[in-house]
Design a protein around this nucleic acid. Structure first.
Length: 115
DNA sequence: ACTCTGACCAGCC
DNA sequence: GGGCTGGCCAGAG
C-alpha cells in the first residue's frame, strides 16, 4: 500500500472517533492517527477527503480558533455546527481547556441524536 | 526537479 | 495576547 492512503486512512479513522461536542486540534488528530507532527496533512484530508461524513467541524487550530477566515462560508458553517453541539464559541474561538469541564454539562444536557 | 502555497504547530521573543 | 521562524509534506504550475 502507499503511504499516502495509509496516512489518510489513519487520519480518517481518528476523525471518526470524535464524538459530538468533542473538539480537538489538527495536531492532536495527527497524534491520534499515529502521525505526530503531520497536522497539515490532517488539514489536507479534511479539505478534499472523499469521505463525506467526517466531523470536520470538530477540528480547530491549536489555539482553539476556527481555521477558516472569519466571516467566510466555512467559518460560519463550522460555528453553526459547533453551537448545535453545545460547544461554546467566543469570538471565533473555543476554550479548549474548558471543554473537559463542559463534559459535565454535556452529559446532563439532552443532546441531539448521535451516530 | 523546483518553487509556491497551504482548513498547521511549537518554540521564542 | 501577538509576531516571526523553521519545520512539516502533498498538490499545482
Amino acid at each position: 500500500m502507499t503511504n499516502r492512503s495509509a496516512n489518510e486512512i489513519a487520519i480518517v479513522a481518528a476523525l471518526r472517533q470524535l464524538r459530538r461536542g468533542e473538539v480537538v486540534a489538527y495536531g492532536e488528530v495527527a497524534r491520534r492517527a499515529g502521525l505526530p507532527g503531520r497536522a497539515r496533512l490532517v488539514a489536507r484530508v479534511l479539505a478534499h477527503s472523499p469521505v463525506a461524513d467526517l466531523p470536520w467541524h470538530r477540528v480547530l487550530r491549536a489555539d482553539g480558533r476556527i481555521a477558516f477566515a472569519p466571516g467566510s462560508e466555512g467559518y460560519i458553517e463550522q460555528l453553526r455546527r459547533l453551537q448545535t453541539e453545545n460547544v461554546t464559541v467566543v469570538d471565533g474561538r473555543v476554550r479548549m481547556a474548558s471543554v473537559a469541564g463542559k463534559l459535565d454539562a454535556l452529559l446532563w444536557a439532552s443532546p441531539p441524536a448521535d451516530e
